[in-house]
């Protein structure tokens, strides 16, 4: 690993940031839907946290692909988030705590099973499984809040149409930063910058979905897309700066050096 270990974020640090900011973001939307563009910025750390958890677990070589870890984590997080839809409205106050901590528990239990019963000998398995599942639950709850926490009367279509997209879009945004940067020269800085880039891309996609979803979400959708695009360009610049440092050589075209 070419990274200086003293500079790396640990997953508890990232998780704490993601949990606090993500919770604020979700509650902000619940409080007033017009705050969504601000809340979008606060949800990006949760993507970073999830991508970092995938990185921590997948670096050990699990015997299953990085993509399996990604969709496993999101399956826990998003499935728990979707259970919020059948909680009795009278108990609405348990959301989002029930889902996020439910996902944390399921993730931790899976980690314990992998560690104690299957005996995988990966020291970070329990911690990072829990962090991964929980951070995806935060993101899924955020998207659910963004698209459904509005007055239900204005919907032209029911929210359940969006569920598969919430699930799979989070999956890709979480697993791709590590999977896309895999190789001997992979380092946390570049992976996390790519993760931020893809986080803004994913929120932009959901801004578009919000515009199409209902007339009442038009303003929210446009503002989310604008904020996401601003973030996209900033993060793209930051990520490309890291790529420039790490790449061996850039060439517009040419042949690899002869070897035969």
């Amino acid at each position: 690993m070419s990274t200086e270990s003293n500079k790396e974020f640990t997953s508890p640090q990232l998780y704490l940031i993601a949990l606090v900011l993500g919770m604020i973001a979700i509650l902000m939307i619940k409080f007033s839907h017009s705050l969504t563009p601000v809340a979008v910025i606060l949800i990006w750390p949760a993507f970073l946290c999830g991508a970092n958890a995938v990185r921590q677990v997948a670096r050990y070589g699990l015997g299953t692909g990085t993509s399996s870890i990604g969709y496993w984590g999101t399956a826990v997080g998003a499935t728990m988030a979707f259970t919020s839809q059948f909680i009795n409205p009278a108990y609405n106050f348990v959301s989002p705590y029930f889902e996020i901590f439910g996902a944390l528990i399921v993730g931790a239990v899976t980690g314990i099973c992998a560690q104690k019963i299957i005996k995988m000998k990966i020291p970070v398995m329990i911690r990072d499984s829990a962090v991964l599942a929980s951070s995806t639950a935060i993101i899924a709850m955020f998207f659910l809040a963004m698209l459904t926490e509005y007055s239900a009367a204005v919907f032209t279509l029911d929210a359940y149409i969006i569920y598969p997209l919430i699930y799979i879009a989070i999956t890709l945004a979480i697993l791709h930063p590590f999977n896309g940067s895999m190789g001997a020269g992979e380092n946390q800085r570049r992976t996390l910058r790519l993760s931020a880039l893809e986080a803004s891309m994913t929120t932009g996609l959901f801004g578009l979905i919000a515009i199409l979803f209902s007339e009442a979400l038009l303003l929210t959708g446009v503002s989310v897309i604008l904020v996401s695009m601003a973030g996209f360009f900033i993060f793209a610049k930051r990520w490309f700066a890291a790529v420039k440092e790490d790449t061996y050589e850039f060439a517009w075209t040419g042949y690899p050096p002869a070897e035969h």
């Binding site: 896309g180 940067s181 001997a184 020269g185 570049r190 790490d246 790449t247 061996y248 850039f250 060439a251």
Partner: peptide, 13 residues
């Protein structure tokens, strides 16, 4: 990003 991770093996982008 994947080509950038291949610096050790002198892979050009």
């Amino acid at each position: 990003s994947r080509i950038a991770s291949m610096k050790t093996f002198k892979q050009t982008l």
